[in-house]
Simulated assay, not measured.
Amino acid sequence: MSTTTIRLEDDLKARINAAAAQAGKTAHAFILDALAQTVEQVEQDNAFHALADERWARIRATGKTVDWDKAKTYLTARANGERPRKPAK
């Protein structure tokens, strides 16, 4: 395990201490959790964008898409807890 030093403005440090106390954690644990959550969010965002880029490239290469009305019906059913078949391209 390595050590990293960060410099915090006094106001931010006070806010971290208060938030950590409210969460029942030490400031150190609170900061580690915040960093881990931020890193995970960036990784998820990058994976999402990579998938979107891949799908967009496939659409551009093949021209195949799903009709909007069929996609909307499918998504509405999923949002309502149903398990419909995916619409055909």
Rank of each mutant, 00 (worst) to 15 (best):
M1F: 09
M1C: 08
S2F: 10
S2E: 12
S2Q: 03
S2M: 07
T4P: 01
I6P: 02
R7W: 08
L8V: 00
E9R: 15
E9H: 08
D10I: 15
D10E: 13
D10Y: 11
D10T: 15
D11V: 14
L12K: 14
L12A: 01
R15N: 11
R15S: 13
A18G: 01
A19C: 04
A19Q: 07
A20E: 07
A20W: 03
A21D: 07
A21E: 13
Q22G: 13
A23C: 09
G24I: 03
G24C: 05
K25W: 11
K25Q: 15
K25F: 14
K25M: 11
T26N: 04
A27I: 07
A27K: 06
A27F: 10
A29R: 03
A29G: 04
L32I: 14
L32N: 14
A34D: 01
A34V: 07
A34Y: 11
A34P: 02
L35G: 06
L35E: 11
A36K: 09
Q37H: 08
Q37E: 13
T38C: 06
V39Y: 08
V39G: 05
Q41T: 15
Q41C: 03
Q41G: 10
E43L: 03
Q44P: 00
D45C: 02
D45S: 09
D45G: 02
D45E: 13
N46W: 02
N46K: 12
N46T: 11
A47P: 00
A47C: 05
H49E: 07
A50D: 04
L51V: 04
A52M: 05
A52F: 09
D53C: 04
E54V: 00
E54P: 00
R55C: 03
R55A: 01
W56Q: 13
W56N: 10
W56Y: 15
W56P: 00
W56F: 12
I59E: 02
I59V: 10
I59N: 03
R60L: 05
R60W: 04
R60F: 04
T62G: 02
T62K: 06
T62V: 08
G63E: 08
G63Y: 06
T65M: 03
V66T: 05
V66A: 00
D67Y: 04
D67M: 09
W68K: 07
K70R: 10
A71I: 14
A71Q: 13
K72F: 11
T73H: 13
T73G: 05
Y74N: 00
Y74T: 01
T76W: 06
T76C: 01
T76P: 04
A77C: 04
R78G: 01
A79Y: 09
A79M: 09
A79N: 06
N80R: 15
N80H: 12
E82W: 10
E82N: 06
R83T: 15
R83W: 08
R83Y: 08
R85T: 05
K86G: 01
P87C: 04
P87N: 04
P87L: 06
P87I: 13
A88G: 15
K89F: 13
K89S: 10
